[in-house]
Structures are given as structure tokens and as C-alpha cells.
Amino acid sequence: MTRLSVNINKIATIRNARGGNNPNLVKVALDCERFGAQGITVHPRPDERHIRYQDVLDLKDVVTTEFNIEGNPDERFIDLVKRVKPDQVTLVPDAPDAITSNAGWNTVRYADHLKKLIDTFKEDGIRVSIFVDADERMVEGAKMVGTDRIELYTEPYATQYPDNPEQAVALFVKAAQKAQELGLGLNAGHDLSLENLRYFAQEVPGLLEVSIGHALISDALYFGLENTIQMYRRELV
């Protein structure tokens, strides 16, 4: 069964819009777990426009499900992850001014860089996942640098899904099959939603985990957080 990790960045965005601590990020994280989330994901960025580095420290000792920290591995991010020692770190090559993540790693071009990073995190017993496009060459490159898992960047799937689901998922199926062949764990995330999640999970083999934030939090405005998490869980059965 594919696990659901809830990305709580958007909760921090709402809080930061007014200052103070409403909504309380730690409480929301604990509520997500209580409502059925099987993991909590945060993505701190250098400008701290949503998740703050202090938030990650505050969550460190209270999250009891899988804690996943994702982001661009600059020096500050590396120091934070090694201090917190989450269950998983997901390496994402997003530029500091990116609105959101928009591409995976070129695991061939940046092989030496990625291998050093992965070795650094593994020294502390942290599972490492690399954010990659649905490209078999990039999956093969991920295997070569020693990562434990890959996370498939699913925005292209979500964009194409309404018009042609079979074509939208085809490259992701091939990438997943390659990951299985190579012994890599498989995660996925970005623009997965109640509309497209079930089909993706049914078609893509070996899917261990999805990380979902924007769509889930948006749906919670209509359906309530507890109900929404349960709705997403049902799409993964």
C-alpha cells in the first residue's frame, strides 16, 4: 500500500501572511498524523517564505510518523538535516527564487555532487531520495550515485492527465519499472490530487510513498482536514 505524506508548507504560508502562530504548524502536523497521514513533509527554502528553519526544529521531536525534509541541498539545508536527522531527506534542485519545484536532477551531470551529498546524509543514518524526472537515464544515474530512493516529479503527468491518462502515465510506468529493476525505492510528488492520484497509484508499480501538499490543503478548505486526508488515503488503496 502506498503511504501518504502530507506536505504542510501551505499551512506555514497562511500563518506567515499574518504573523503570529495561527494556524499553529506543530498542531496541524500532529492533527494530520491523528487523521491518518503516514508522514509529514516540509520543504524549507532559503527565504523562509513558508516553512521556517525553526519550524523544522520544532517538529523534530513531535512528529511520530515518517518525517521527510526536502529541499535544495545548500550548506544551511545540509546542516539543518544533519542536526534534525529525519527519517528521509529528499534532494530537490530548485532555484532559490523558484515558486515551486519544476524539474528533477540531472543525475548524470551532477553525479559527483550527489554522491558526496548522499554519503554525508547516510553517515547519520538518514534515508536519501532524489527528485528526478520520469526518464530512465536519470533513474539509472540515481542508482549509480547510491541513493536509496527516487521521487518522480509528477507535474507533467498531472498536466496531461485530463486529456490522455494513458499517455500521461506511460513514462512514469517505465521509470518505475527501471527503479524496480535497479532495486531503488520509489516515491512521487507534485500536483497529485484527488482527480489523478488513484490512476497514478494503480498504474505505477512499486510506489511506496506520495508527498502531497498544495492540492490536499486546498481540498481541506472545502472538505475539512480530517475528511480530506481520509479521502486521499482511500485513493491509494
Rank of each mutant, 00 (worst) to 15 (best):
S129M: 06
S129T: 02
S129Y: 08
S129A: 14
S129V: 02
S129Q: 05
S129E: 09
I130W: 12
I130L: 15
I130P: 13
I130A: 13
I130V: 12
F131S: 00
F131R: 04
V132C: 08
D133I: 03
D133T: 01
D133G: 08
D133W: 13
A134M: 10
A134D: 12
D135M: 14
D135E: 15
E136F: 03
E136L: 12
R137G: 04
R137L: 15
R137W: 12
R137F: 14
R137S: 09
M138N: 13
M138Q: 15
V139K: 12
V139A: 10
E140S: 10
E140F: 04
E140D: 11
E140P: 12
G141I: 04
G141P: 14
G141H: 13
A142R: 15
K143V: 01
K143M: 04
K143D: 04
K143P: 10
K143Q: 07
K143L: 06
M144S: 09
M144V: 04
V145N: 14
V145H: 13
V145L: 13
G146E: 11
G146K: 06
G146L: 08
G146F: 08
G146T: 07
G146Q: 12
T147E: 12
T147D: 14
D148P: 07
D148Y: 09
D148N: 13
D148W: 08
R149D: 12
R149G: 05
R149V: 01
I150P: 12
I150E: 11
I150M: 07
I150S: 08
E151V: 01
E151W: 06
E151M: 10
E151H: 03
E151I: 01
L152W: 06
Y153R: 06
Y153T: 02
T154S: 03
T154P: 00
T154F: 05
T154L: 01
T154H: 00
E155H: 05
E155R: 07
E155C: 00
P156G: 04
Y157F: 07
Y157Q: 00
Y157R: 00
A158D: 02
T159D: 09
T159E: 12
Q160K: 15
Q160G: 01
Q160V: 10
Q160E: 15
Q160D: 12
Y161P: 00
Y161L: 00
Y161A: 01
Y161K: 00
Y161F: 14
D163V: 03
D163S: 05
D163G: 03
D163T: 04
D163C: 01
N164S: 09
N164G: 02
P165V: 00
E166N: 11
E166M: 03
Q167P: 05
Q167Y: 04
A168E: 05
A168P: 05
A168C: 02
A168Y: 08
A168S: 04
A168M: 08
V169G: 05
V169P: 10
V169H: 10
V169D: 11
V169T: 06
A170G: 05
A170T: 02
A170P: 08
L171N: 12
L171V: 03
L171I: 01
L171F: 09
F172S: 07
V173Y: 09
